[in-house]
């Protein structure tokens, strides 16, 4: 969907993006991760031409973006920024309908689409005539997402979309986003400085520093096989908790005992569920059952940690 080759942005004072290349496949979420000044936002904004590159090529759907009409290109790409991006003088309904109106959709279709999005993002319809200032930060962020999704773009660009929210709301909204079918179908480039966000939302992560991509790969690759010291140090702080995001129940199965007859009150999870999500659900001593290799396996929070210990030992050894 998106192909970037040797992208460079030179400002009079500094080099913001230095020879960056990557591809984003259809329905894939690529996270551009880095500290401020790493060039991640500049890279993102060059994709919808808010910033013009000094050199390099960007193709969207096989066409160089420089050859597209600017406004048409942008209307085909959903753009989500922090909740401050909503028009304060537009109602929620008007904010969501912004791009469909620019595209001159039929008014009935706009109304239907707006209601559909509100329902999907679990916002009451009474909010349609409210103004952004009357909503909470989390609600505003959902409206921001609805606005970007309104015209059904195939591609979403998200620039620190949750940056203005408190940590609890952030993780709640992240979970909601991941569960939305409509979002899973999109090709997404997401910019963040939050490592956990990157691990939770990214199919692949491009870790940037000093305008260059230090490493690009799946979360597991970055965590277990860092390409250089920078990458290793970057994750060092949260190394342990990040494991919970890169391993699923299935990864854990070899180190857990079989269970032929699951207890009747046990909850059944799919095997690919991330350990972090499992732990979220296990508040007490209940057990979780999942199916792997045609057998049922039971796990409790008490048994996850020893199994994970063995897994890690194995990983490092190999």
């Amino acid at each position: 969907m998106i192909v970037i080759r040797h992208l460079t942005k030179q400002y009079p004072t500094h080099l913001a993006v230095d020879d960056v290349s990557f591809e984003v496949g259809a329905r894939e979420t690529l996270v551009l991760l880095g500290t401020s000044g790493s060039g991640k936002t500049t890279t993102l904004k060059m994709i919808n031409r808010l910033i013009e590159p000094t050199s390099g090529i960007i193709e969207v759907n096989g066409i160089k973006i420089g050859e597209r009409k600017l406004h048409e290109l942008r209307r085909e790409i959903g753009y989500v920024i922090q909740e401050t991006g909503l028009f304060p003088h537009y109602t929620i309904g008007e904010n969501i309908a912004l791009v469909p109106r620019l595209l001159q959709w039929d008014e009935r279709k706009i109304q239907d689409r707006t209601r559909e999005l509100l329902a999907m993002l679990r916002l009451p319809e009474t909010y349609l005539n409210a103004y952004p200032g009357q909503l909470s930060g989390g609600q505003r962020q959902r409206v921001g997402l609805a606005r970007a999704l309104a015209a059904q773009p195939a591609i979403l660009l998200m620039d620190e979309p949750l940056g203005a929210l408190d940590p609890v709301t952030r993780s709640a909204i992240r979970r909601e986003f991941r569960q939305l079918e409509e979002i899973r179908k999109k090709t997404i480039v997401l910019v963040t400085h939050d490592i956990r966000e990157a691990f939770e939302l990214g199919d692949r992560i491009a870790l940037m520093d000093g305008g260059r991509i230090q490493q690009i790969g799946t979360p597991r690759e970055l965590l277990l096989h860092p390409a250089n010291d920078f990458v290793r140090h970057f994750f060092a702080d949260q190394w342990l908790s990040l494991q919970l995001h890169v391993f699923s129940l299935e990864d854990l199965s070899p180190y857990l005992p079989d269970e032929q007859t699951p207890s009747p009150d046990a909850r059944i999870f799919p095997a690919h569920t991330q350990l972090a999500d499992v732990l979220q659900e296990l508040a007490g001593p209940e057990s979780v059952v999942f199916q792997a290799n045609h057998r049922f396996i039971t796990v409790q929070s008490a048994t996850i940690w020893p199994a994970l210990g063995q897994l890690l030992q194995n990983q490092t050894a190999s």
Partner: peptide, 20 residues
Amino acid sequence: ALKEAARGMGLTRWQVLVRL
């Protein structure tokens, strides 16, 4: 930031002026 958001969503210069 608001102006950039508007441009990013595909508003023309004139639309940014009139609507925002």
